[in-house]
């Protein structure tokens, strides 16, 4: 469903994404972990077509993101880390607006919101202007508006930030259900527990490179630790950091040696 091939993204001198390749199958729940500034948001922005990669390609449902952007966007939903909402609209008006942009008719909008709105406890806010709502409520509206048209691929960038425990649970449940029904989910998060509990596979990005992919179990083996995923995460990112440092040090001492 999602295929990233040798993605590279430079910002001037900075390499934000470095030769990243990844294939995610239909109905798979994929979680990306990584320290701050690792390149998660940048990868997601390339995947959703917001920015062009420096080289490499991304495709969704068999359509290249750059070549056939409209086909991709019809099948993909994206909730960014700071979603944009029209401040003066009410949530209900906003939901109808996005529904109609996805070519849903009145009946389809009613049908899908009837299920989603009560689950996310949004009934009492439906007629208030969005500008007066709290951060978590706005986040929930963004998630509902993205789920409404039942996309084939759902991309979320740290969606749990600002949600209370109850609604975190709701989001988790809804995502799990949808993924069992065949929705492909790509989620970036800092909460290791979420990744471990929900994801079929976990990827760890560090300095723009995908340093490990696999189930929680496989990651543990790869890092040579056991127990909590946190340990594996810390050990994997630390190994990588050491490796980079050693490489740099070696380069200083012996420039003629090249290391992959």
């Amino acid at each position: 469903m999602i295929e990233l091939k040798n993605l590279v993204k430079h910002f001037g001198d900075l390499v934000a994404v470095n030769d990243l390749s990844l294939t995610i199958g239909r109905g798979e729940f994929f979680a990306v972990l990584g320290p701050n500034a690792a390149g998660k948001t940048t990868t997601i922005k390339i995947l959703t077509g917001l920015i062009k990669p420096t080289s490499g390609s991304a495709s969704v449902c068999g359509f290249d993101v750059q070549e056939q952007p409209l086909e991709v966007r019809r099948r993909l939903s994206y909730v960014p880390d700071f979603p944009f909402l029209y401040d003066k609209l009410t949530p209900w008006e906003f939901l109808r607006f996005t529904g109609q942009l996805f070519r849903m008719d009145e009946e389809a909008i009613q049908r899908s919101t009837r299920e989603l709105i009560p689950r996310f406890n949004l009934e009492s806010y439906l007629r208030q202007p969005i500008e007066s709502l709290s951060h978590g409520t706005r986040q929930r509206i963004a998630i509902v508006s993205a789920l409404m048209h039942d996309p084939e691929v759902f991309v979320l960038d740290e969606p749990m930030v600002g949600l209370d425990p109850h609604h975190t649970r709701v989001v988790k449940d809804v995502l799990k259900e949808r993924s069992l029904r065949g929705m492909t989910i790509f989620l970036s998060t800092h909460q290791l527990s979420i990744a471990e509990e929900m994801a079929d596979r976990i990827g760890i990005i560090h300095h723009g490179r995908l340093i490990a992919v696999g189930t929680g179990e496989q990651l543990r083996q790869q890092s040579g630790t056991d127990g909590a995923l946190e340990k594996s995460f810390l050990s994997l990112t630390a190994q990588e950091a050491n490796f980079v440092e050693e490489k740099a040090a070696l380069k200083d001492r012996a420039p003629e040696i090249t290391i992959a």
């Binding site: 029209y86 401040d87 003066k88 609209l89 008006e93 607006f97 109609q100 942009l101 070519r103 849903m104 008719d105 009145e106 009946e107 389809a108 202007p129």
Partner: peptide, 29 residues
């Protein structure tokens, strides 16, 4: 997805954008 007849009634994206933004402007005023 819904039938062709009912999707025909959905306003075009440009119309939708105009509606939403005019509504916003009016409320701001």
């Amino acid at each position: 997805m819904s039938s062709a007849a009912s999707t025909a009634k959905i306003p075009s994206p440009l119309r939708l954008l105009l509606q939403v933004n005019l509504l916003q402007m009016w409320r701001k005023f």
